[in-house]
Computed example of a mutant assay.
Amino acid sequence: MRTSGYGEEAGLEVLEGDWDLFDDLSEVEATIENVEETEYPQHRPGVSIVRVSGGHGWREYEWSNGHVHRYDWELFTWDLRCPNCQHSDNTIYMVTDEVWAESGLTRNECFRCLEKAIGRQLVPADFDSTIPCNDPTQFQHGPELRQRMGHA
C-alpha cells in the first residue's frame, strides 16, 4: 500500500512509505477507513470528509480543509501449489533443519516431494513441534500429512 497527500503532517509519520501486505481487500478497506475516520481527525480538529472516490486499487479521501489523501495498492494471486509437482494440497509445514538440508530442496515443495528427495516417508520426529504451522490446532493439514506428523 502506498500513500500520498500527508506531506509533513505531524503525528502521521506512520503513513509514509509502503505498508505491510494485507490478506484481503476488506483488510485494506478497514485500515484506510480507520486512518481516515480516527487518526487524521485527531490531528486536525473540525475537519470532515467531503468526498471519497476510488476504483480498483485506489481510494482518495478529500477533506474539508482541502487535503486529499490517496491510497494505491496492488492485489496479487499467491500460487500455493507445489512448485515441483504442482499438487494443490501443498499445506504449510516445517521439518527440522537437518531433514530440509538432507533434501536439497530450495522452495516450498510439498511433503510428498520432500519424501522423494530424502528417499523415505516422513515420521513425527522429522517435524519441528515448536513451530506453529505444525500445530494441528492452528493449521489444517490433510490426512496424509497429519499421519506423518503423528496427529492422525
Rank of each mutant, 00 (worst) to 15 (best):
D18G: 09
D20A: 12
D20N: 14
D23A: 14
D24E: 03
D24Y: 06
L25W: 06
S26V: 08
E27P: 01
V28N: 00
E29G: 00
E29L: 10
A30T: 13
A30H: 10
T31G: 13
I32V: 13
I32H: 07
I32T: 03
E33C: 11
E33R: 15
N34V: 03
V35R: 06
V35E: 10
E36Q: 14
T38M: 13
T38N: 14
H43R: 12
H43L: 15
H43S: 15
R44L: 04
P45I: 09
G46H: 12
G46V: 06
V47T: 15
V47L: 07
V47G: 01
S48L: 06
I49D: 02
I49M: 10
I49P: 02
V50D: 04
R51M: 08
V52G: 07
S53M: 04
G54S: 09
G54V: 07
H56C: 10
R59G: 00
Y61W: 13
Y61Q: 01
W63Q: 08
W63P: 03
N65H: 11
G66K: 09
H67R: 14
H67E: 12
V68G: 01
V68Q: 04
H69L: 07
H69I: 05
R70M: 00
Y71Q: 03
D72A: 02
D72E: 15
D72T: 08
W73P: 02
W73R: 00
W73M: 01
W73Y: 07
L75G: 12
F76W: 08
F76H: 06
W78K: 08
D79L: 04
D79P: 06
L80Q: 12
R81F: 05
C82V: 01
C82Q: 02
P83W: 03
P83V: 05
C85D: 11
C85Y: 08
H87I: 12
T91W: 08
I92D: 15
Y93R: 01
Y93L: 04
M94H: 12
V95F: 00
T96R: 05
T96P: 05
T96Y: 04
D97P: 03
E98K: 10
E98M: 03
W100A: 08
W100C: 03
A101W: 04
S103F: 01
S103R: 01
G104N: 05
L105E: 03
T106L: 10
T106G: 04
T106F: 01
R107N: 10
E109H: 05
R112P: 00
L114Y: 04
L114K: 01
K116M: 12
I118C: 00
I118K: 00
G119F: 06
R120P: 00
Q121W: 15
L122A: 05
L122R: 02
L122Y: 01
P124A: 10
A125L: 08
F127L: 06
D128S: 02
D128E: 10
D128G: 05
S129Q: 14
T130H: 11
I131D: 15
P132F: 03
P132C: 05
P132E: 07
C133R: 08
C133W: 14
D135F: 10
D135Y: 09
P136K: 09
T137P: 05
Q138T: 13
F139M: 09
Q140A: 05
H141N: 06
G142I: 06
G142Q: 09
G142C: 07
P143E: 06
P143D: 10
E144I: 11
E144A: 11
L145Y: 02
L145A: 00
Q147H: 06
Q147E: 15
Q147T: 14
